[in-house]
Amino acid sequence: MISALTLVGCGSDDEAPTAAASSTTEEESARSTEPDEAEAAEPAAEEDDTSVVDFLRTAGVGDTLVNRLGEVGDANGYGLGVDVATDLEARRRLASTQVETCRNVAVGHRTWEGLQASDVSAGASEEQAAAMADFLREEFCPHVAPYKEAPLPKQTLGGPAQDPRGGRGLASPLSWWDARYQRVPWSKGCATQTGQPTGEPVAYRLADDAVVCATVPPAKSLKKHLISVDVVFASPVGEARARDAVLALLPSDASADEETEGINPDWSYLEGGCLNVNFGSERLESVVAEVKKDAEPWAHAIYYSDGATNDGAVGAYTGKIKQILLSTGANEPGLTGDLTC
Rank of each mutant, 00 (worst) to 15 (best):
I2H: 10
L5S: 09
L5E: 09
D14I: 14
A16H: 06
P17L: 05
A19Q: 12
A19L: 13
S22D: 12
S23D: 10
T25C: 15
E26G: 05
E27F: 12
E27D: 10
S29D: 12
S32C: 10
S32I: 07
D36E: 14
A41D: 15
P43A: 04
E47K: 11
D48W: 05
V53Q: 06
D54W: 10
L56S: 08
L56T: 05
G62N: 06
G62R: 01
G73K: 04
G77I: 10
V82L: 02
V82G: 00
V82W: 00
R91Q: 10
C102M: 01
R103T: 01
V105Q: 10
V105W: 13
A106V: 01
A122V: 03
A124I: 02
A124H: 02
E127L: 11
A129D: 02
A130Y: 03
D134E: 13
L136M: 05
F140I: 01
V144E: 00
P146S: 06
P153N: 07
P164I: 00
P164S: 02
P164N: 04
R165P: 01
R165G: 02
G167Q: 00
G169E: 03
L170N: 04
P173D: 11
Q182S: 14
R183W: 04
V184E: 02
T192M: 13
Q196V: 15
A203H: 08
Y204N: 08
C213I: 08
C213N: 01
A234G: 14
V237T: 03
A242L: 03
A245N: 09
V246P: 11
A248H: 05
A256T: 01
E258Q: 11
T260L: 12
G262C: 04
G262A: 04
I263P: 07
P265L: 05
S268Y: 03
L270W: 08
G272R: 00
L275K: 03
L284N: 06
E285I: 06
D294P: 03
A295W: 00
D306E: 15
D306C: 05
G307D: 11
G307V: 09
G307A: 14
T318H: 12
G319D: 08
K320P: 08
K320L: 08
Q323K: 09
G329M: 04
A330Q: 12
E332V: 12
E332G: 07
E332I: 07
P333A: 03
T336A: 15
C341L: 04
